[in-house]
Simulated assay, not measured.
Amino acid sequence: MSALKIKKGSSRKSAYDLRDPNGEVIENHTLAILVDNEAGVLARVIGLFSGRGYNIESLTVAEVDHEGHLSRITIVTRGTPAVIEQIKAQLGRIVPVHEVHDLTVEGPSVERELALFKVTGQGDKRIEALRLAEIFRANVVDSTLESFVFEMTGTSEKIDAFADLMRPLGLIEMARTGIAALSRGA
């Protein structure tokens, strides 16, 4: 019996999501969008994605210029290179959008995510949770006799790895902020 040869861009999570080996590669792209901070802008940007059936893997929004009333929307989405180019072109045509940057193709960038984990447990499981938190540089931000709340900042992969290790130790709840990203250099 031979192993499945799953190409880059295909999912390892479901047999129903196998990609055509001759088709284009589906990639994750991080888009940074600078917009006017006014009512309805986020709805218009999100409406573009939902109206065309594009998925959003991660979404963060915050005002970055109080005087200029500008906000930065960071979106992680998936698609073929042609679909990503179409998304960027359509975003650029929305009136309150000032800039659209594809951080994935524009060069090196820094991406981070914040996560909170609630872990319950007693005895050895509690000690093991604290040991793993120290290894992953997670901070204890709340503690009771029955549970801990850990805070961790890092890449999505690091957060996923920590969550996978905490599940058998009593992970009962998790909250994630989504990816915040900036390009590196000048």
Score class of each variant (00 low, 15 high):
Asn28Ser: 13
Val105Asn: 09
Leu18Gln: 14
Arg167Tyr: 03
Lys13Gly: 10
Asp20His: 01
Glu38Arg: 08
Ala3Glu: 15
Met166Cys: 12
Ile75Gln: 00
Gly121Glu: 08
Gly40Ile: 03
Ile26Arg: 11
Ile159Ala: 04
Leu42Lys: 03
Asn37Pro: 02
Lys88Asn: 11
Met152Thr: 09
Val97Glu: 05
Ala82His: 07
Ile33Pro: 00
Met1Phe: 08
Asp164Ser: 14
Ala115Gln: 09
Gln122Ala: 09
Lys8Tyr: 06
Glu85Ile: 02
Gly40Thr: 06
Arg52Glu: 04
Glu38Ala: 05
Leu130Lys: 13
Gln122Asp: 07
Pro21Arg: 09
Leu70Tyr: 11
Ala32Trp: 00
Lys125Pro: 07
Glu173Gln: 12
Val45Lys: 00
Thr77Asp: 01
Val140Thr: 14
Arg137Gln: 13
Arg131Met: 09
Ile172Glu: 14
Asp142Pro: 01
Thr177His: 09
Lys158Tyr: 06
Met174Glu: 10
Asp36Asn: 11
Ile94Gln: 00
Gly123Gln: 08
Val105Phe: 03
Thr80Phe: 00
Glu106Trp: 03
Lys5Cys: 14
Ala181Gly: 03
Gly51Ala: 04
Ile84Glu: 02
Tyr54Thr: 06
Leu34Ile: 05
Ala129Ile: 08
Asn28Leu: 12
Ala129Met: 08
Lys125Arg: 14
Gly92Glu: 04
Ile26Tyr: 04
Glu146Met: 13
Glu128Cys: 09
Tyr16Glu: 14
Val140Ala: 10
Gly68Ala: 14
Thr153Phe: 03
Ala186Tyr: 13
His98Asp: 01
His98Val: 01
Asp36Val: 02
Thr177Lys: 06
Gly123Leu: 08
Ser2Gly: 07
Ala186Leu: 15
Pro81Glu: 08
Thr77Ala: 06
Ile87Pro: 02
Leu59Val: 01
Thr30Asn: 07
Ser2Gln: 11
